[in-house]
Design a protein around this nucleic acid. Structure first.
Lengths: 266, 266
DNA sequence: GGTCAATACTGATGCAGATCAATATTATTT
DNA sequence: AAATAATATTGATCTGCATCAGTATTGACC
């Protein structure tokens, strides 16, 4: 992706603020997966006050950009967001696809600028927290800090596994790994996007995005995807992906389901 | 490294318990870099009670192993530890080199088993916490939870940067990156291993270890290392590494010093 | 339904880094 | 100091994926 693409998005209107009033925390469909998971029901009017706004952002817009101070951290309510770092030559490495419940933009450089950029892959809805309020929020509610530690542990494990893929696996295994990881994450974090009948998930990732995630070219992703299809391991078309033979795919990918559910010792 | 190598280390005696009594937290040389950083001086007798033992472990022994329940989490007091995942073919991907102050073995799978293995690269000293006590410790002292979040943010950023290297950079840039990152980490976390005179650090990593970190063969690491030497960017011999031209090396590696110091929004 | 842009697909060729096979050097042990 | 093991170094060859250069298909918009 060209760098100009990123920069132009910033100058154009990125956010559409959702009409007030937005939903209460008590009615939030992702709270049980998100940062406020452990907050008792009776105290949700307390969490409420830290919510700044809800944003709806359409696909291909940037939520925040590397080297720029973000005004908000977000909980992703619905849709997919790609977090990525941009290289000097304008290409990018995708670090993670955020799914509903995930926390975005919480870690920054010492000067307050973002360490990476975030792009809406689909239309998304975001719950925004002003960066100024977060320290206070964390201090007042210890269960939030513990939940953050838990979410960090999971994210860390996922990142480490991607590193293993990049360092030690060939293109086909890496692709199979990403597919399986995504399949399991979607089932957990976005269950309405899973259809049991066909064992398939909504899958909005283009072959270029897959390449930017795996350190491969879109051309080579295409060839490996074809291999997985002709081997009757998956089907992938019209924005849906079906797992046809999870067992064989898991072996091929050296995918470890246990490592998807890592916890701190607390 | 062959898998048998790992397993044999477990069966042999791994730990030598250091003669009691061990140092107080108040005298600990790494506390200000470690998990107890924020604990007020007056309350260090409180942290004290959670420390289980001190261990001295000699180079090439394993501290804990993937898929096995560890009995302790550790703060590394001195020396270098490699954290790695083992592949089906017996090769390994090194995830991180732990340096003094780093916390080891804190994240585990749901069943309590380690997600990765840990090997002492040099002789090391460890401060051990029994896994049973950690939850209580974290609950009683909120500044410990916040410090953990901070350490997680830093580790996450480092892991993401390695992912970028593996996905987007050629062998020479990756090697240069690892060298610079290690150089800066050693200066901060193990200042006695830095010599300003020669701008050099203690560097116990073999070319095989470098390869296992970067997803390269030891043969290719050797060739790239030679390139960096003939270009007068570094010297590397007898367990020491000197940076001769940090500016050019930084450019070549696309190394970003800001990303070494990532913080949560608290 | 037609136009246009984005995405998917295919073939030919090139190269960075792996693999294989030694030899040389350095560190460790006796 | 000699023996041994570990690590480093070098050359020759091979290969997985990149690159280049298209064509085909799909989806979005008028």
């Amino acid at each position: 992706m060209a760098l100009s693409n990123v920069l132009s998005s910033v100058n154009s209107a990125v956010f559409q603020v959702r009409p007030q009033p937005f939903k209460d925390c008590a009615e939030c469909e992702v709270r049980k997966m998100a940062l406020f998971q452990g907050v008792p029901y009776a105290r949700l009017n307390w969490t409420q006050q830290y919510r700044e706004a809800e944003f709806d952002v359409t696909a291909k817009n940037q939520l925040y950009l590397e080297k720029i101070k973000p005004r908000y951290a977000f909980t992703l309510v619905s849709g997919w967001v790609a977090l990525y770092k941009t290289m000097e030559d304008g290409s990018r490495q995708i670090l993670k696809y955020a799914l509903p419940g995930d926390l975005l933009g919480f870690n920054v450089c010492r000067d307050g600028t973002a360490t990476h950029s975030a792009e809406a892959i689909t239309d998304v809805r975001l719950c925004a927290f002003s960066v100024e309020n977060i320290a206070q929020m964390m201090g007042e509610q210890p269960e939030i800090a513990l939940r953050l530690i838990e979410m960090n542990a999971r994210d860390m494990s996922i990142c480490q596994q991607h590193l293993v893929c990049a360092g030690k696996k060939d293109a086909r295994a890496r692709l199979a790994y990403l597919i399986l990881e995504t399949y399991h994450r979607v089932r957990k974090q976005s269950p309405t996007d899973f259809e049991a009948q066909t064992n398939s998930i909504r899958f909005p990732l283009t072959q270029e995005l897959l390449g930017d995630t795996l350190g491969l070219t879109n051309v080579h992703v295409n060839r490996m995807l074809k291999k997985l299809k002709v081997d009757d391991l998956i089907t992938c078309q019209h924005g849906r992906l079906a797992i046809l033979d999870e067992k064989r795919l898991t072996e091929l990918a050296q995918f470890d389901l246990d490592a998807q559910d890592v916890h701190p010792l607390v």
